[in-house]
Simulated scan of single mutants.
Amino acid sequence: MRRLPVYLLLDTSGSMRGEPIEAVNTGLKVMMSSLRQDPHALETVHIAIITFDAEAKLVVPLTPLDELQVPEIVTPESGPTHLGMALELLVGRLKRDLIRSTPERKGDWAPFLFVMTDGKPSDTMLFEDHCPIVRRQGFANIVGCLAGPKARRQDLEPLCDHIVSLDTMDSAAFNSFFKWVTSTIAGGSRSMGLQGEVPLPPPPAEIQLVI
């Protein structure tokens, strides 16, 4: 069975401390539980999680859905938002992780990338340098999530195909976001092989589709 790689880049900067990161942890658990109830997703989906604050960390390497143990995501008391560093780490992981198609065999399906942040990248130059590199990696969709009032559309536009926004950073908002991510991944796992960009499901009322 060909794999569907899914990469989650999660902001763990100081401003995510407290209720926001607790809501993210709850949302991740709900997402994994829901995906495991989808037989096709269970066979194809592999997930990796990268967090970013003052540094970027691979907290979950690309792992089959049925083997994935979701760790508790934590944040420092304060610190910057090094999204550029996370993209740099992502590009390195893609070179290691992805099975590319050859004349002799079919490789992975085009991967998905979800980026969630509540602020502007602190490492602006590194972020700007890596946006075009990431976009050349052949993702089926790159989806950004702006969490809270300080995150701005223009900061993610160079990277993402689609951007959604959450007006609040409470558990209800993050649960809605991760449930929508679940639907997107599950739909992607069933539509692999279609030509062109994989369509996104309609977001719930708590999520605004920006682009």
Rank of each mutant, 00 (worst) to 15 (best):
A205E: 13
L58H: 05
K29I: 08
L35N: 04
I185M: 06
D118H: 01
V24K: 10
F114V: 04
E55R: 14
A205N: 09
P61K: 11
F52I: 03
M169C: 01
I207Y: 02
G148S: 02
L87R: 03
L68M: 13
V60T: 11
F139T: 06
A173S: 14
V74Q: 09
P202Y: 05
G14E: 05
V60W: 02
V60D: 02
V45D: 09
S15T: 05
K95Q: 09
H82I: 04
L200E: 02
K106Q: 13
A54F: 14
P5T: 06
I185R: 07
N25G: 03
C160G: 03
I99C: 11
H40I: 03
Q154W: 09
I142D: 07
D123N: 12
I163L: 06
L58P: 00
T75I: 06
E206S: 11
I73L: 15
V198N: 01
A186W: 03
R105L: 08
M16C: 03
F174Q: 01
D11L: 14
G119I: 05
G84E: 02
M1V: 15
P111N: 04
S122E: 04
S13M: 07
V70H: 11
E77V: 09
T51A: 09
D97M: 10
V45H: 10
D123V: 08
T182G: 03
L28T: 12
R93V: 03
S33H: 06
M85L: 15
T26G: 08
K57G: 00
I163D: 00
M169P: 03
P121N: 12
